[in-house]
Structure formats: structure tokens, C-alpha cells
Amino acid sequence: MAAAAISIRGLKKSYGDNQAVAGVDLTVESGEVFALLGPNGAGKTTTVEILEGFRRRDSGEVSVLGADPAHASAAWKQRIGIVLQGTGEFDELTVGEVVRHFARFYRNAADPEHIIERVGLSEKANARTHTLSGGQKRRLDVALGIVNQPELLFLDEPTTGFDPAARREFWGLIRDLSHTGTTILLTTHYLDEAEALADRVGVISRGELIEVSTPSTLGGRNQATATVSWLGGSEDTDQPTAVVQRLAQEFGGEVPELTVKRPTLEDVYLKMIGQR
């Protein structure tokens, strides 16, 4: 396997008395989609902005594509794509003008028209950016983040304010990028987003990374007791299949209102951050 795209050891950052990041260790492998999940104010953006080179850390070791982002060179920025939190407002410029302009800054820029098409803004290419909807502005941000065909893409809460259809469309775009080998570090507070996109998830709360695992095993979710319930009863069990078979025999066929439920990612997540 190639060298890790991101490697963090003992990262700390405080603002005055507020310890925003309290000793984070994390490795993101090359080609991976990693989601940082956490409530607002948990330290997601601070962590990501340190990795992007926008903020200085207080202590710890950080390596992003083999370099320290605190001393980011132009050559390093050529290889990185950044989609910041919040939308960029280019006001009276058109989508096409903004993307073409940003493409000029990169040696390895993709064809701007192709990028605009890729984020689904072709019909808006000649529209002034202030006329775009919130979701469309965000897609323009993504276009600027991928116009240099980055090896590593940061996405800080990319789909905030999207309607469900736009979110799903956006997920498709991220999967495409991932399939072409782009390493992606995503922050989100949408659990479905992390579940849909990420190879691994890290839950961050009060500046600490409390668990890192795959979405399906987070918090021991895959081994958690299942709840089998039916009309007239319910049972917590490690062997739901056996319980269902037994019930089928008891009822002589269909079990009325049968459900087998395992904790959702949301249940697990809320329990994790609630504990603290």
C-alpha cells in the first residue's frame, strides 16, 4: 500500500481556554474515503483547517501528502483540493468565469467545461453566481476544489443545505472521484452521508477522536444485540435467526408484524457522543 495520505499524531489546538482539538491521532490511507463525524463545535473544522494549512497547531505532528501543511508550498497546493465550510460568494461573476479563472492557478487543471458538467452546473455555466441556489453555489465550491484533479480532497460539510435529491446526486460525484483514486477527507454531521460514502468513520467529540472504524462496525454495531419484535412481544437476542424460526413454528407460518432491528448508525453515534 502507498504511504498514508494524512498522518496525525498528538494534534492539539486551543483558542484561549477552549481546547478545540485535544490530542488527535489519525491516519488516512491513500485512496481512502474517510469521514470525520461529530456534533457542531467538536473540532472537525479546526482539525481539517490545520490539515489544509489554514490554521496553526499548538502541538503534534502532522503530515499531509508527505509535507507539513503549516509550511505549505505552492507545489503542495497543486496536489490538494479544498472545499471549505460555507459557500464562497463570487457575486457578479459567472460560474464559467470563476471555474476558468481558478483553473489558471494549476498546472494540472482539468478542462473547466468538463468540471462544470461533472458537478451538474452545465446549464448554469453562464449564470451569475449570485443567482444560484444554495446547493448550486456549493457545487461551484466543489468544482473549484476538484478543478486541479487533486490527489487529496478535503470536503468540510459539503452538503449542508442540500435537498435530499441534490445530496444523493452529490454522493454519486464523490463516489466517482473516489473510484478514480482520489483520497477524500470528509467532515459531516449527517450520519447517512458518512454511511453512504466513507470507507472508515472517525467520531470526534470535544476535540477527541473517540472511535475509528468502518460505518458498519462503529460502536460494535454489527455485534450488538438485535431486537426481534412481533404482535404481542419482543425479545433481545444475539441469535435473531433462531428466534424468528422458533416464532414461525409457534405461529405456524407468518409471524404478525415481525421486525428484526439492529441499532442504526445514528443510535450508536448518539450513544457515543451522549456518553461524554
Binding site: 489544509e52 489554514f54 505552492a74 507545489a75 497546493k77 497543486q78 490538494i80 479544498i82 471549505l84 460555507g86 459557500t87 464562497g88 460568494e89 463570487f90 457575486d91 481558478f102 492557478f105 494549476y106 465550491d141 473549484l144 486541479n148
Partner: peptide
């Protein structure tokens, strides 16, 4: 305020 400057800083633009 509109985040335009920060977006420029995220590029290799001198």
C-alpha cells in the same frame, strides 16, 4: 466575508 479570499489562499496562486 464572502470567503473569496480564503478560496484564493487555498490555491497555489502567489
Amino acid at each position: 466575508d464572502r470567503g473569496v479570499l480564503k478560496r484564493y489562499r487555498s490555491t497555489p496562486m502567489p
